[in-house]
Design a protein around this nucleic acid. Structure first.
Length: 541
RNA sequence: GGCGACGUAGCCAAGUGGCAAGGCAGGGGUCUGCAAAACCCCCAUUCGGCGGUUCGAAUCCGCCCGUCGCCUCCA
């Protein structure tokens, strides 16, 4: 079956055909670097990360370009407010942005062009537009002449007349038409400026994406992405600029726009100037990256979505379900203690798992691809993963009920099931590996200290001293701490094991009260201890 | 005001003509010292409302109600 993608330009799903066979040129509008990014940005970049991963899974070679807007009114304003330069401000937020993307598991783009590094190309484009009668200069400013570009308004589905009628802002009287937009701004005193044929100035916002995408990917793109809020005017203007300059049509084959995130039901979209945001850093402190992904992928990328505690909690439980299936299957595959048994009760779940994990028409892979081929229907793809996890769980459960080890064949089937779950999970960017947050590691260390002080007979103080102390928990406060991602695993494992083994000693002595108390304390930290016939198991929420 | 989306169980959410995926929550059971996880069973005769087209509609058409986006910086 062929991949179909909804194209904002045509308002239809269209079969995905690339300009060059097997290759995809994809440009995604990146952040303006005037401040920290929020989970609305994260949602957009997660969506395009999954699109990129799926295209690569489908065999395309994707060149993924994402820009950084590092000169713009707000950045200048923010830098001035902090008494720093736009360069220093941009450098700081780029560094932070990339760490946050890493924390979310967003794969890095192939190129991250920056507006300030593309000024000569912008000047060249503006000059050419001027030469072609598509732009005009007034007092050091240069405007785009929208009436000279026939297709203006097509992407956003509106006509110049409508927009003129609905205009709500004061129009610069120097503009020939109210919808003309600025390509180049004359510098005001004290502002960063570059030399140009029109005098010192800086680029307008829209021109940078035309210049950067043409410079990195050529005159035509396969996919250009962004949030639905940049359809107009940003992307509309990009078409006018790029096609006006290159004369090539279409500038973009597929315009892909994600729906916007809202913070609460009675508020509008999450946006920095309204202040109704949850920063990516804050989200990563509170949630496993898989939780954030499952949340985002639970609704279709074009639907508007609500960032709600209930939905995040459901996503956390869902991510945990997938992760637990992988962990439990791995544990069974790793254990060799029990004799293999090909019990009759085990035949059916293993046969069903074999089918689900295979490559036939009823297999999970086929369902996954059918969903993703239909305009990246990630909720459908995710649903198929849950069904695969259930099949894995049923096989593991059958073996557990028989208290049986696995035959070679069963081992092979289960191994294939888990491998498939990991493989398709990775296409959605899911790690399916538990990670603890720095806060959890710090709290666990305190618990271990407390226990070894109270009951040194059970919880060995010498052992605690041999465990590296985790980095202190970053203070609350937006800019505190430099690392947003979960990174505490090194110190975490020995700590959990030290505490859990002490609890084993207590339980061996039938001291259920101590055992239950320790389990409850760990649970408060998000560490779940489970007792199995083969000893304890633990996992992180 | 103009343009465009959307409205599916307690919550989140797929499904765009043939008897309503999946997740979370909830109820009952198996397992367990107690738990947890997992497994089994149950949980929308119904898809905002009213009409229409059709043998047949959540899915197509019309009207109404509600929500959201864009029209201005914005992922």
């Amino acid at each position: 079956m062929a991949l179909r993608i909804y194209n904002t330009l045509t308002r239809r799903k269209e079969e995905f055909v690339t300009l060059a066979p097997g290759r995809v040129a994809m440009y995604v509008c990146g952040p303006n670097l005037y401040g920290p990014s929020h989970v609305g940005h994260a949602m957009s970049y997660l969506v395009f990360d999954v699109i990129r991963r799926y295209l690569e899974y489908r065999g395309y070679r994707v060149t993924h370009v994402q820009n950084f807007t590092d000169v713009e009114d707000r950045i200048i304003e923010a830098a001035r407010g902090e008494g720093t330069t736009i360069q220093a401000l941009a450098a700081r937020y780029i560094d932070r942005f990339l760490r946050e993307m890493d924390g979310l598991g967003v794969r890095r783009a192939d190129h991250y062009p920056r507006a300030t590094e593309t000024i000569p190309q912008m000047v060249q484009i503006i000059q050419e537009l001027e030469r072609r009668g598509l732009a005009y200069a007034v007092d050091g400013d240069v405007f785009y002449r929208v009436t000279a570009f026939p297709g203006y308004g097509r992407l956003s589905g509106r006509s110049l007349d409508e927009m003129q009628a609905g205009a709500r802002i004061e129009v610069d009287p120097r503009k020939e038409h109210p919808m003309d937009f600025v390509l180049w701004k004359a510098a005001k005193p004290g502002e960063p400026a570059w030399h140009s044929p029109w005098g010192p100035g800086r680029p307008g916002w829209h021109i940078e994406c035309s210049a950067m995408s043409i410079a990195m990917l050529g005159p035509q793109l396969d996919i250009h992405g962004g949030g639905q809020d940049v359809v107009f005017p940003h992307h509309e203007n990009e078409i006018a600029q790029s096609e006006g300059y290159t004369g090539r049509h279409p500038f973009v084959r597929f315009w892909v726009h994600n729906g916007l995130l809202r913070l609460t039901a009675d508020e509008e979209k999450m946006t920095r100037h309204l202040g109704n945001i949850v920063s990516i850093r804050e989200a990563l402190r509170r949630f496993h990256p898989d939780t954030i992904r499952v949340f985002v992928l639970s609704s279709h990328y074009r639907s508007p979505t609500l960032w709600s505690p209930e939905a995040l909690e459901a996503a956390a439980r869902g991510a945990e379900r997938l992760r637990t299936a992988v962990e439990n299957a791995d544990d069974l595959l790793a254990s060799t203690a029990r004799p293999a048994a090909a019990a009759a009760e085990m035949a059916r779940p293993f046969a069903e798992l074999a089918e689900a994990a295979g490559d036939g028409g009823a297999a999970i892979r086929a369902r996954f691809e059918a969903a993703m081929d239909d305009d990246f229907n990630a909720p459908g793809g995710l649903a198929s993963l849950f069904d695969l996890a259930s099949a894995v769980n049923r096989a593991v459960d059958a073996a557990a009920r028989r208290r049986a080890g696995l035959t070679e064949e069963q081992r092979e089937v289960l191994g294939r099931g888990v491998a498939r779950l990991r493989e398709l999970g990775a296409v959605l960017g899911l790690r399916l590996v538990a990670t603890a947050t720095p806060a959890q590691a710090a709290a666990l260390y305190r618990l271990a200290q407390e226990l070894s002080r109270e009951r040194p007979d059970l919880f060995d103080p010498a052992r605690l001293r041999s465990v590296p102390q985790p980095a202190p928990e970053p203070a609350a406060g937006e800019d505190a701490g430099s690392d947003p991602g979960p990174s505490a695993d090194v110190a975490f494992r020995p700590l959990v094991e030290m505490v859990a083994e002490g609890r084993v000693r207590a339980r061996r002595a039938k001291d259920w009260a101590t055992g239950d108390r320790v389990r409850a304390r760990l649970a408060e930290l998000g560490v779940l201890l489970e007792d199995t016939p083969d000893g304890f198991k633990w996992r992180v929420r």
